[in-house]
Amino acid sequence: MMTQELFREDAMLLHCDATVTGVGEGGVLLDRTVCYPLGGGQAGDTGWLIAGEQRWRVTDTRKSKEQPGAIVHLIDGDPPALGAAVRVEVDAARREAHRRFHTATHLLCALLPYPVDGCSITETYARLDFHTDEPFDKDAIQAGLDRLVAEAHPVRHRWITEAELDANPGLVRSMSVQPPRGLGRVRVLEIDGVDLQPCGGTHVSNTAQIGAVVVTRIEKKAAKTRRVVLGFAG
Rank of each mutant, 00 (worst) to 15 (best):
L29C: 01
D31H: 02
D31G: 01
D31V: 00
P37C: 08
L38A: 13
L38H: 12
L38G: 06
G39H: 13
G40S: 09
G41I: 00
A43Q: 13
A43R: 15
T46H: 10
W48I: 03
L49V: 11
L49I: 11
L49F: 12
A51H: 08
A51E: 13
E53K: 01
E53H: 06
Q54A: 15
R55I: 11
R55G: 07
W56K: 00
W56Q: 00
R57I: 14
R57A: 14
V58W: 02
V58P: 00
T61P: 07
K65V: 10
K65W: 14
Q67M: 09
Q67C: 07
P68R: 07
G69I: 04
A70S: 04
I71M: 09
H73Q: 09
H73N: 04
I75M: 00
G77Y: 01
D78C: 12
P79N: 14
A81Y: 14
A81P: 07
G83Y: 12
A84H: 10
A84S: 11
A85D: 10
A85Q: 12
V86A: 00
E89L: 01
V90N: 11
V90Q: 12
D91H: 01
A92Q: 10
A92D: 14
R94S: 10
R95N: 06
A97T: 09
H98I: 07
H98D: 07
H98Y: 15
R99I: 02
R99Q: 09
R99C: 06
R100Y: 03
F101S: 07
H102P: 01
H102M: 03
T103I: 04
H106L: 14
L107G: 08
L108Q: 00
L108E: 00
L111A: 02
L112R: 02
P113M: 13
Y114Q: 11
Y114I: 03
V116L: 05
D117Y: 08
G118V: 06
C119E: 09
C119L: 11
C119Y: 11
C119N: 08
E123R: 12
T124E: 05
T124K: 10
T124G: 04
T124Y: 11
Y125D: 10
A126L: 01
R127E: 05
H131P: 06
H131M: 12
T132C: 14
D133I: 10
E134N: 07
F136A: 06
K138T: 09
K138E: 15
A143W: 05
L145I: 11
D146M: 08
D146H: 10
R147M: 08
R147F: 15
L148H: 07
V149D: 01
A150S: 03
A150T: 05
A150P: 07
E151K: 02
E151L: 06
A152E: 02
P154V: 05
P154M: 03
V155A: 05
R158M: 05
R158P: 14
R158H: 12
W159T: 05
W159V: 06
I160C: 01
T161P: 02
E162N: 14
L165N: 05
L165A: 09
D166L: 12
D166E: 14
G170F: 15
G170C: 08
L171A: 02
V172G: 02
R173Y: 15
R173E: 07
